[in-house]
Amino acid sequence: MLQKHNAEAHMIQYRNGLHCTARILKTEGIKGLYRGATPSFVGIAVEGSLFFGIYSQTKVYLQGGVQSGEPRPQVIIPSAAFSGAIISFVLGPTDLIKCRMQIQGTDSLVPKSSRYSSPLDCALKTVKAEGVKGIFRGGCATLLRESIGNVVFFSVYEYVRYHMHSNIKANSSNHRNLVDIGVGIASGGLGGVAFWLTVLPLDVAKTLIQTNPDKNCPRNPFGVLSSGWIEGVLYSLGATVSRAFPANAATIVAWELALKMLGIKRD
């Protein structure tokens, strides 16, 4: 919301994330905060399953099936980039539906007759108006965001995790569990912050491309970034980074806990 409305003319201007939240609550109520949540939940569920599975299996393949304790860039970088590229094909359509559902609630330029009644309605109307390729609008920006961002994310995560485990000794299994959770929170949270600090401009470009009412609008993210994007980055930076740490910390802790419960050994 901050990316779209503060990066284009004739839109509602939000001073910060708190101002945006307060205005949504005032005009739409609590349900306004969850507008577009359904495609996000679906996208995240599919993304998480594919993402970590592809990353882990690609790492195993590149390591020749041999586990190595110390992180290796020649393994992490291609594994992260490949998994990010694959999931971008899932995230592209779900992000488009989410963004379009979110902006219509406060966008005075969208007449009520043209608003979407549900995520499915949004998807069907998009395909009808723009064809199947319309649902993948912003795909290039999404692919770049996920490939580049996840290289940064996993590089930070793997190195922070390795060095923290190397320097923290646990004297019992209970302490080990607490250490694992603490390391997961720190490494996942820092990885998430690094991800968004790196690719936030690409995310702003993606949002502007996906929500542009002109179906023939420019699709090159770098062309979009050449003008009018800095406001979207600056206004959404605080909200994005403050969300990144807890969200990614929780994701990593859940992933590592699932691996432990399934008896899958980590490096």
Rank of each mutant, 00 (worst) to 15 (best):
Q102H: 01
G105Q: 07
P71K: 06
M11E: 15
T106Q: 02
S56Q: 09
G32D: 03
I97Q: 07
G64D: 05
P39H: 08
P71T: 07
C99E: 14
G29I: 01
Q74P: 00
D95S: 15
T27C: 04
T21Q: 01
G84P: 10
T27D: 12
I76M: 07
E47M: 08
K59F: 07
S88T: 11
I77P: 12
E28A: 15
L25Y: 01
P39W: 03
L18M: 13
G69Y: 00
L91I: 12
C20T: 09
I87W: 09
M11Q: 13
T94F: 08
Q74D: 13
L96M: 01
L62Q: 12
Q63S: 13
A81P: 10
Q102Y: 01
I30D: 00
F51V: 03
F51D: 11
G17T: 07
I44Q: 14
S68L: 08
S108V: 13
G48W: 11
E28M: 10
P78A: 09
Q104M: 01
G29H: 05
I86Q: 08
P93A: 02
G84R: 02
V46N: 08
Q74F: 05
N16H: 01
I97K: 04
G32T: 14
L109V: 11
G92Y: 00
G92E: 10
T106F: 06
D107Q: 12
G92R: 00
M11N: 03
G69V: 00
Y34V: 11
A45T: 15
S40Q: 07
F51K: 02
L18A: 11
T21N: 00
K59P: 05
P39I: 03
I103K: 11
Q102S: 13
S83Y: 05
S79Q: 10
R100K: 12
N16S: 08
T94I: 06
K98A: 15
Q13V: 11
P93R: 12
A81T: 03
S56D: 14
K98N: 14
T27P: 00
S40M: 07
V90P: 08
A80M: 03
S88H: 06
G43M: 05
K98L: 04
S88D: 04
F51P: 05
Q63K: 13
I12F: 08
L25M: 15
S108I: 12
G65C: 14
S40C: 05
C20I: 00
E28V: 01
K98H: 04
V90T: 15
L33F: 08
F51A: 02
M101P: 09
L96E: 01
S49A: 14
G92C: 14
I97H: 04
P73H: 09
M101N: 11
R72W: 06
L62C: 03
F82C: 05
P73S: 10
L96P: 03
E28S: 07
G43D: 13
D107E: 07
T27G: 01
A22Y: 09
G53D: 14
G36N: 09
I77K: 02
D107W: 09
